[in-house]
């Protein structure tokens, strides 16, 4: 008897629920379908964004995993081999500079061991009849341009690999010992992310057009305040042919006209 009573109540409740559901659907607004679409669209978009973010993250990670960094000398040897393919002349170095690969997130640790994943090199010949531009990207040397001149009026190459007796890995160790800090990639105005390196001929004597082969390490001064816009930079120059530190300088700020002010750092001999 009691069982029958429960079945009856349940049936009535079920009927009531169905009636309520029926009327609620019937009274639904006309734009329900569009709302539904928006909802769906939102869902799809979110899914897409999430998917894209995931893909980007995956790609970035893959890139980071694939990031192959080399020292200045390793880059120089790679570049030299590539330059040899472009000319019968002996390729002589004009300059080599590490650069930022902005397609990959930069890290504060970039260059801390003297290696970078992107380098630019310029080679010329003794005669001045060929000029070769090469980039090193993730350990691969790529010729980006070759120029030739019948009258030998291109910029001449000057330095053989054997002229360079110090590598960026050794130079950066000394730079860190002297207090140099890495550039912070989060500061967009700073072009130095981590540590950067250049080897080339500099005009160290204003009275002469002769150049001196130097290796430069660039980073941030230990005295730089933790500013959000621009840090104070620091450079240390090594004689590339002897490995000795030639000079070190740190930026101290700007004068009233906006010119950068630098001071020499006393070297400990």
């Amino acid at each position: 008897m009691r069982k029958k009573k429960y079945v009856g109540i349940s049936s009535i409740a079920l009927i009531v629920i169905m009636v309520v559901l029926f009327f609620s659907m019937k009274n639904a607004p006309f734009d329900d379908s569009s709302n539904q679409s928006e909802e769906q669209a939102a869902t799809v978009t979110t899914e897409t964004i999430n998917e894209t973010e995931e893909q980007t993250a995956t790609t970035t990670n893959e890139k980071n995993n694939d990031k192959k960094s080399v020292t200045a000398m390793e880059a120089l040897r790679l570049g030299y081999s590539e330059a040899k393919k472009q000319t019968e002349e002996e390729p002589l170095l004009i300059s080599i500079t590490s650069t930022d690969d902005t397609s990959i997130p930069q890290e504060r640790s970039d260059g801390a061991d003297g290696t970078r994943d992107a380098w630019n090199l310029e080679f010329g010949s003794k005669k001045g009849n060929v000029l070769i531009y090469i980039k090193i990207d993730n350990g691969v040397a790529i010729t980006t341009d070759v120029k030739k001149h019948d009258k030998n009026l291109l910029e001449k190459g000057h330095y053989a690999i054997s002229d360079i007796q110090i590598d960026s890995s050794d130079a950066v160790k000394q730079a860190v010992e002297m207090g140099m800090k890495p550039g912070n990639p989060a500061i967009s105005d700073d072009w130095i992310k981590g540590y950067h390196f250049t080897i080339g001929g500099y005009n160290t004597d204003p009275n002469s057009s002769k150049t001196r082969l130097l290796l430069r390490v660039m980073g941030i001064s230990p005295n730089s305040p933790n500013r959000e816009n621009e840090s104070l930079r620091m450079s240390i120059f090594f004689d590339a042919q002897t490995g000795e530190v030639v000079s070190a300088t740190e930026m101290t700020g700007y004068d009233k006209d906006g010119n950068t002010m630098w001071k020499n750092i006393e070297l400990k001999h």
Partner: peptide, 18 residues
């Protein structure tokens, strides 16, 4: 003129920007 580029593509060798 005078300076002749070879068959290699002449591209910017600066920062490997996108």
């Amino acid at each position: 003129t005078s300076i002749t580029s070879s068959q290699f593509a002449s591209t910017t060798i600066g920062a490997l920007a996108a």
